[in-house]
Design a protein around this nucleic acid. Structure first.
Lengths: 210, 210
DNA sequence: CGGCCCCTCTCTCGAAAGGGAGAGGCCGGC
DNA sequence: GCCGGCCTCTCCCTTTCGAGAGAGGGGCCG
């Protein structure tokens, strides 16, 4: 750095105070970056982004009130050039794919080392994409897989709660036969033999949460 | 504190460097405590406990190599008076129950505030139990629920992977009829109508992981 | 306009799953 | 020893699932 005239201004969004502290401690030790805002939930993250317009926002996917994917979508809609670095424990390919395809500049797993985190922040702040190889692999894998339709996701959600076809039909106001059609499509797309296996796969891939 | 002669010596065990940093930053700011060891996985946690004999160990449940429950068991076996403070995102009643009934001195959720974390550490170091009300409620709820036998847990595990009765039978070297008997027992104990619902409940309660 | 995809509904059929009841062997506690 | 819990296995019966094959309507797009 020939001239360290201006520091990278960061916003942190994570619902765990201890994680925010850890990131802040790590960051404020650096001479070229500083934390200007900390958010504990999705709504706050968006509010503080508007107020502070940070250079980079580091955000967790699992947050109260509004989840990370929704925050990514909302912020990038209003600020297409926003630099968002996702930092989460979720390594399901669906979450990774959604965030990156919506325009997030990077995706880190929380078990990343200090070096990697700082390096990712610097890369993203320079408007370059940061993606660790393991994450990139998952994103690529995801691209080769069939996409579920919205209706199928609705059904999958109920499937994950352990509902029967009849129950699903009632809740979605369709006939049981139609519910079965959707379930069959889900089994085919997820390459599962039974509904229970489909749910297991969906959890692993991050198609459903909880 | 009239005499701050001796600081509380702490070991931190968590697989996320950023969480360890956060805790360490928070702790080392206090005049009455200090971090003497940091572990990134279960084996290391045990090793460093033996080496440093800290006053209190703060540990996460989800860790590589050896999970938190196993660490609790192992350490308490050798040091029955060890003071362990669990700090994790898992709020399933099973994990809470297992740790506390094995003798952990406290159980914190990661979204706890700085105050609560520090207060918990001080309480535990004074050999008093620390349990937040929400956690205590879950532990009590768990006590009212029927216990699954080891064999039922084996079956439940496979159930969670989406296996069929026939498949479960083959893997456990029993007949399909026996597998069905176990599944029926599981459904009854978990108060579930279908295997898929049983898996959903098991996940929520922390009876199975992944 | 003609595809194409999605959602909906219909049908049949065999394979699993779930409910209920019982029973023998094994082991540990009272 | 007896009792109780656990694991194992055995029936029977009903409901639910999953595979396969269609088919009509609506919306989007070239």
């Amino acid at each position: 750095m020939t001239t360290a005239a201006r520091k990278i201004r960061l916003e942190l969004a994570d619902d765990h105070p201890v994680v925010r502290d850890g990131l802040a401690a790590m960051i404020n030790q650096q001479h070229d970056m500083e934390v200007v805002a900390e958010a504990g939930d999705g709504d706050e993250a968006i509010l503080l982004y508007e107020r502070h317009q940070p250079d980079v926002m580091v955000l967790d996917l699992r947050m109260p009130k509004r989840d990370g994917v929704a925050v990514v979508q909302d912020v990038l809609e209003r600020h297409p050039r926003a630099r968002l670095l996702i930092m989460t424990t979720h390594d399901g390919d669906e979450d990774i794919f959604r965030c990156l395809s919506q325009g997030a500049m990077g995706y880190l797993l929380k078990d990343a080392s200090r070096q990697e985190i700082l390096s990712a922040i610097r890369t993203v702040s320079a408007d370059r994409q940061y993606t660790s190889s393991s994450v990139a692999v998952k994103a690529l894998q995801r691209m080769a897989k069939p996409t579920l339709t919205q209706r199928e996701l609705d059904v999958l959600q109920l499937l994950g709660e352990g509902r029967s076809n009849k129950d699903i039909a009632r809740r979605l106001a369709i006939t049981e036969g139609t519910a079965k059609t959707h379930v069959k499509a889900i089994l085919t797309k997820l390459d599962a033999i039974s509904r229970t296996e489909a749910v297991a796969i969906a959890h692993k891939r991050g198609l459903v949460h909880l």
